[in-house]
Design a protein around this nucleic acid. Structure first.
Lengths: 189, 189
DNA sequence: TATAAACATGTAATTAATTACATGTTAGAT
DNA sequence: ATCTAACATGTAATTAATTACATGTTTATA
């Protein structure tokens, strides 16, 4: 996928919350936001280097312990502008949300009937694991607070993204469950 | 994204239904299956060339009209094997389903409150357009037939993928609608 | 009969992303 | 005192994907 430099803006957005190192950014992609965008550390370090030369971010060093250097990054005013104009741009089309399992199912006729249930069950297991992780995250951050009116703007962004991820997994699991039933019924006819 | 050669298997899967040209394959990605995987013609022609050298497909020429050459591709037995083993492989993790709109919302705090409704409305418009397209497709292929038990295996794959795409859009639209309400309420407090 | 839209195939340049290679530090547990 | 997991940063090679460049045919319609 070559969406135009989405990683750039993902990094700028994260840095607009607080200064971070490349490692911190990598870690963020393992949490809620990683459900909607992610990148490997190798790509992140390269993008940070590029953002530095473009003056969208600046760097300073923090020492951890005795001599471990953490390179911290801060948004410059140019970086803030870049981020803001990206956030306000209208999308003119929705890009394909790629999904390999759905692609495979399209080719159902080439899968022996007896293999199908275990493929579904494997996918259900993966999806349920992910849903459990997301529900845990919800409990940690919004467990007590179930009225989103009280959240501040930063928490609200997190809340919306997390509820989206949960809704998406629940919807996926529903579809898997009903589809497996349909396939079983169909095979029996 | 560098999922290991998914395009290869998408092409093999399409060719397992019937012989196709590169143009035909490009066209398929504008229909149901394009909701879950897609590629530009430039990438498709390159992949076809690669599949030829790997002996997963073979080629013959069909003439359209007077002299327009359509290069048609057929699965070889190796191609059939490749496809089958890919279809049976278990996934060991679910990859990030990237979504730029959700990513942006995570950075909500940097969007001026008055700009938010039009961003949502734009997204709702795009999603409703897509849903309308999918419902049209459903009407064309399964309009009368609403009992999937009667479908043959090839139709069933199509049915499952199309209902998945519809469920996904409906779920997206629900989330957009409730989230817009939450944001409006939150801003008023 | 002109012309536009759809049909049809390709390459080149560039960007995005992954996998593998490579190295070193720190904190906590045994 | 040793060891392991987590912390921390980078580069090289390769693959995947897009955008732009490039050309020609056929069909329907105005």
């Amino acid at each position: 996928m070559a969406q135009r430099r989405v990683l750039k803006y993902a990094i700028l957005g994260l840095l607009s919350k607080q200064d971070m190192s490349g490692y911190d950014i990598t870690s963020e992609f393992k949490k809620a936001i990683g459900q909607f965008w992610s990148a490997k550390h190798s790509q992140i370090y390269l993008e940070l280097k590029k953002l530095l030369t473009e003056d969208s971010i600046s760097q300073y060093i923090e020492i951890s312990g005795v001599k471990l250097e953490r390179k911290m990054y801060t948004l410059t005013s140019k970086g803030k502008e870049d981020l803001k104009s990206w956030l306000l741009a209208f999308e003119d089309h929705v890009q394909t949300e790629k999904d390999v399992f759905a692609l495979r199912l399209y080719f159902l006729k080439d899968i022996p009937l007896e293999e199908i249930p275990s493929l579904f069950e494997n996918q259900l297991r993966l999806r349920n694991e992910k849903l459990a992780f997301l529900n845990d995250q919800y409990a940690v951050y919004f467990g007590e607070e179930n009225n989103p009116i009280d959240l501040n703007k930063e928490e609200l962004g997190h809340f919306l993204v997390l509820t989206k991820a949960i809704a998406r997994e629940e919807n996926y699991i529903d579809w898997l469950t009903t589809s497996l039933e349909i396939v079983k019924q169909n095979g029996r006819k």
